[in-house]
Amino acid sequence: MERNKLSTLFSALLLGLSALGWQACSQGNSETSDLPYLGERQLVQREVDGQQVTDTAYHRIPDFAFINQDSQVVTSLTVQDKVYVTDFFFTTCPTICPKMKSQMLRIYEAFEDDPRVMLLSHTIDPKHDTVAVLRDYADRLQVNSDKWHFVTGEKDSIYSIALQYMVSAMEDEEEPGGFVHSGAFVLVDQNRHVRGIYDGTDPAQVDRLIRDIPALLPKKKKKKDADKN
C-alpha cells in the first residue's frame, strides 16, 4: 500500500515536471520567431563586388488569381504584406470540413481585429461551389469577407496551388463526397513563404498555430502597448 502511494506520487511529480518543461519549451519557441521555412530550397548564385555569393531561395507560393464570395478577384496582391492561413475544402464535404471550419473560426476570432492576418479557404469542388454557394456558406458562418476569403477558380489552378502549399487534394470517386484532401492549415508569411503546416482538425495543433502567428508579425504593436503603459 505504502509503496503504491509512493509510486503514484512519483508519477504525478514526473507528469507535472514534464508538463512544465514542455510549456517552457513551447513558449520559448513562439517568442523567438524562428519558425522554419518549409518546402524545397534553391541555391542562387549572385555576384557582389566581383565575388560569387550563394543565396538560399526559400520555396515561395507563386502568383495566383481566384474569385471570392463577393465576386472580387483575390490575388497575390491581396495577401501582400499579410500573414495568412490557408486551407482546402468543399461545402458539401461529409467528413472533416466542418471541424476544420470550426477550428478556422477560432483563428478568425483570435485575429479578428488585426488587419495583418488573413484567412484564405479554397474550394476543391469549383463545379458545385460557385460564388453564390460560397457566399451562402460564408454568410452562414457569419464571417467578414475582408478577413476570410472563400475562393473558387479554375480547377487546375486550384489543384496546382494546393501542391505549392504542400497540401494533397484531388478528385476520387471512391472517397466520401468524391474528393480526397487533407485537413491541413498552412501558415504563410508576408513573403509568401510557408512557415508551418498544422492539422486543422486537431484543436491542440490549432492552439499552436494561434501562438505561432504573432511570431511572424512585426513587433511594432507590442512596443506601442508598452509606450502606453
Partner: peptide
C-alpha cells in the same frame, strides 16, 4: 459537444 457550426450545421 453537439454544438453544431454557426448557421451551417
Amino acid at each position: 459537444d453537439g454544438s453544431g457550426l454557426r448557421n451551417l450545421i
